Simulated scan of single mutants.
Amino acid sequence: MQAVIVGATGLVGGCVIQELLAEPRYTHVTSIGRRSQAPQVKKWTERIGPMSDMDALWSEIQADVAFCCLGTTIRKAGSQEAFAEIDWHLPVRFARVARQKGVKQLHVVSSLGADARSKTFYLQTKGRMEEDLKTLGFETLVIYRPSLLLGEREEKRPFEHFSAAAYRFVEPYYPRFLQTWKPIDAKDVAQVMVQQSLAGIPGTRIMENRDMHAQPDQS
């Protein structure tokens, strides 16, 4: 199997790369991005360039499975419009080209609570992205909706850092009725994504945050 991934420099994307490289059933991985990670592994190559020219970045790429791990914050993006470009329009462009190239599976990171009808701009944008992806006709489309992601980011997100630290302190006492919103390690999300891709179950489905905790191996 061959995979292509966009968003490999992010928290979940970086973990997905590591999972793919460690999985012998994946013989080659191509990452698409704006900056190089200087891969030192033979089965990993990069396509670096402007995200606005997705067709050019996809040239010569062959893949069975596509992973989209793009995501930012409105604060980092600088505006709602810039945020929507990264978290909605760019994933859809990536997916549309993937479909044109014959990719069978698409695995996409969204967000807990994503809903195109939400009054919250962040969740509404994620929901609109999901709705657009569902129209593209992938044999397998899996959307992952994690809660607060735990892990070491390159960028600093003070609120998330504080929330993650607070969660680790109260984790032993976390009430059962809040399990739906329980923070999740990015490595766990990545592991589930790769497991699901190996299973290759046809159809469109959503993996909610609670589904990704202690997810059994389906490979």
Results as ranks from 00 to 15, higher is better:
residue 1 M to C: 05
residue 5 I to R: 05
residue 6 V to Y: 03
residue 6 V to W: 00
residue 9 T to V: 07
residue 9 T to S: 15
residue 10 G to A: 09
residue 12 V to S: 01
residue 12 V to Y: 12
residue 14 G to W: 03
residue 16 V to L: 01
residue 17 I to F: 10
residue 19 E to D: 13
residue 20 L to W: 05
residue 23 E to F: 04
residue 23 E to H: 05
residue 23 E to L: 04
residue 29 V to N: 10
residue 30 T to S: 11
residue 31 S to E: 14
residue 32 I to N: 14
residue 33 G to N: 03
residue 34 R to G: 13
residue 35 R to E: 05
residue 35 R to H: 14
residue 35 R to T: 15
residue 38 A to Y: 13
residue 39 P to A: 12
residue 42 K to T: 15
residue 43 K to E: 04
residue 47 R to S: 14
residue 51 M to S: 09
residue 52 S to M: 02
residue 56 A to Y: 04
residue 57 L to F: 12
residue 60 E to R: 11
residue 62 Q to K: 07
residue 63 A to W: 01
residue 63 A to P: 05
residue 64 D to P: 11
residue 67 F to V: 04
residue 68 C to S: 11
residue 68 C to L: 01
residue 68 C to D: 07
residue 69 C to S: 11
residue 71 G to F: 07
residue 72 T to Y: 07
residue 80 Q to T: 13
residue 82 A to E: 02
residue 84 A to L: 04
residue 86 I to Y: 02
residue 86 I to L: 13
residue 87 D to E: 05
residue 88 W to S: 12
residue 88 W to P: 00
residue 91 P to W: 02
residue 92 V to L: 05
residue 93 R to T: 07
residue 94 F to T: 04
residue 95 A to I: 07
residue 95 A to D: 11
residue 99 R to F: 12
residue 100 Q to L: 14
residue 101 K to D: 06
residue 103 V to L: 06
residue 106 L to D: 04
residue 106 L to V: 00
residue 107 H to D: 01
residue 109 V to W: 03
residue 109 V to H: 04
residue 111 S to D: 10
residue 111 S to T: 11
residue 113 G to T: 11
residue 116 A to M: 06
residue 116 A to Y: 08
residue 117 R to A: 15
residue 128 R to C: 15
residue 128 R to T: 12
residue 129 M to K: 08
residue 130 E to F: 06
residue 131 E to D: 13
residue 133 L to W: 05
residue 136 L to H: 01
residue 136 L to A: 02
residue 139 E to N: 09
residue 140 T to H: 10
residue 140 T to Q: 09
residue 141 L to S: 05
residue 141 L to C: 10
residue 146 P to E: 03
residue 146 P to L: 03
residue 146 P to G: 10
residue 148 L to C: 03
residue 155 E to Q: 13
residue 155 E to Y: 08
residue 157 R to W: 01
residue 157 R to P: 00
residue 158 P to D: 11
residue 160 E to D: 13
residue 160 E to H: 08
residue 161 H to E: 10
residue 161 H to N: 12
residue 161 H to T: 15
residue 162 F to R: 14
residue 162 F to T: 06
residue 164 A to M: 09
residue 168 R to L: 13
residue 168 R to D: 09
residue 169 F to M: 14
residue 171 E to M: 15
residue 172 P to W: 02
residue 173 Y to G: 01
residue 174 Y to I: 07
residue 175 P to K: 06
residue 176 R to P: 02
residue 178 L to Q: 08
residue 180 T to N: 14
residue 180 T to R: 15
residue 181 W to D: 15
residue 181 W to S: 15
residue 181 W to T: 13
residue 185 D to K: 01
residue 186 A to T: 05
residue 187 K to M: 09
residue 188 D to F: 00
residue 191 Q to V: 10
residue 195 Q to V: 00
residue 200 G to R: 00
residue 202 P to V: 13
residue 202 P to Y: 03
residue 202 P to Q: 09
residue 208 E to M: 09
residue 209 N to K: 00
residue 211 D to E: 14
residue 212 M to D: 00
residue 214 A to R: 11
residue 215 Q to I: 00
residue 215 Q to D: 03
residue 215 Q to S: 08
residue 215 Q to A: 14
residue 216 P to L: 01
residue 217 D to M: 06
residue 219 S to I: 03
